[in-house]
Design a protein around this nucleic acid. Sequence first.
DNA 1: TCTTGTTAGATTGTCGACAATCTGCTTGTC
DNA 2: GACAAGCAGATTGTCGACAATCTAACAAGA
Lengths: 229, 229
Amino acid sequence: MAKLDFSPIADTTRRAEIVALLRRAILTGQLEPGQKLNELRISEQMRVSRAPLREAMRELVQEGILTSIPYAGTFVIDVTAKDIIDAYSLNKVLDEFAIELAWPLRDRRFFDELDRRHEAVKQATRALDTTRQIETALQLHGLIYEWADNSVLLETWQRLTSRLQMYFALHQRARNEPVPAEDVHETYVALLKGSDMRAAQRHAREHIDLDFEELLAYARGLEKRASKN
Amino acid sequence: MAKLDFSPIADTTRRAEIVALLRRAILTGQLEPGQKLNELRISEQMRVSRAPLREAMRELVQEGILTSIPYAGTFVIDVTAKDIIDAYSLNKVLDEFAIELAWPLRDRRFFDELDRRHEAVKQATRALDTTRQIETALQLHGLIYEWADNSVLLETWQRLTSRLQMYFALHQRARNEPVPAEDVHETYVALLKGSDMRAAQRHAREHIDLDFEELLAYARGLEKRASKN
DNA sequence: TCTTGTTAGATTGTCGACAATCTGCTTGTC
DNA sequence: GACAAGCAGATTGTCGACAATCTAACAAGA
């Protein structure tokens, strides 16, 4: 018999689909920070009852991108400069740890996947698809976490990555200028293929710091805006 | 007018209470790993409809202590030796980071709170209340996270701490012997009050490693058991 | 004018019933 | 006896309606 590994079939609950839809809307910035989610309106738009919608919203609250106040409503989280600083400083620490764990586990498949994801970023960049560019860049970055073979670490990274994606999307959306065309990931990929772990860890930090400055400036601007209902 | 700062009033939704009840049942080991949660039975026992119960379960799934399979059921997570290793190795990294962040922020209130929580552990130990001992020890440990002033880090720790509490509870429950009476936290507290940050970080690691060995042995035993429905 | 009480409307929280799906048993066929 | 089809019971997923709560506007009184 031919060796075939089937991927698990799709979650066929409404709830799961709603989660995916809402998450996407939030992470791409279609739903703005602080915005209230009206259950009735959303459930009507999605042609779904409120029960699965509410369960989906519960998940996203725990995921950290929604926040809920009993009897008042559920809102997209607000983004402050401090949130971004916090997320990034933690990200640095986790990155260092992930590289350390993944380093001895790198193999052929790792390098192939690294190239594949790198290629995806470049393609999105060429296509000027900023949303997809952010998505693919984070997926490239997440490979070391998937390879680190530490389920709790991976879970933590996935939570963190949600926020990072949201921050980047907001940032991109704010500045209405084309995306930088050069490839900022070239060095990162090269270092992960190399033999100097310390160098890779160091670069991961600095590489992150690059976009961080821009993002932070944007966040400081946000700070001024009043919260909307 | 006298200066009074009121604490926020309690969440009065059934959902929040259910979450608290279920979480407690899981973290104290009343609900065993792998056990299935029957919605109808639980909702009848709690005198509550399934809607808020299901929403509560969604939260705990995202919190990482329940796992859900569509149309099959929701189960308490299984505990494997690897899970415990993963959680602990990440905990070490986070501890080091938290101490680094909290270190310059230590003040009078920090030291007072440190003593208070330390006292709570000692009291629970004297009372031979193992559940409370675990709880208070983790709260003592969590102080550096609360003081680190990094919301994402704190959130991450709280997620991690859920699992740790569960692991410890299972461990305690398995070995039916009295709790060690000596105070293993004395040195930790002293170092956090001192002036050598590196020493504090080092001890945090080793202190953790202490119970870790026991816990791990227990987990390896668990590994053999088949999953129950 | 400021504060307090009231009320109507909108929104969230909860409930009981129904639909979709799974599991294990039974039955029939070879 | 082995195996597939189909049925019955139990359980999860979803729905529509009702109850509890909040918000904002308005009225009454000091």
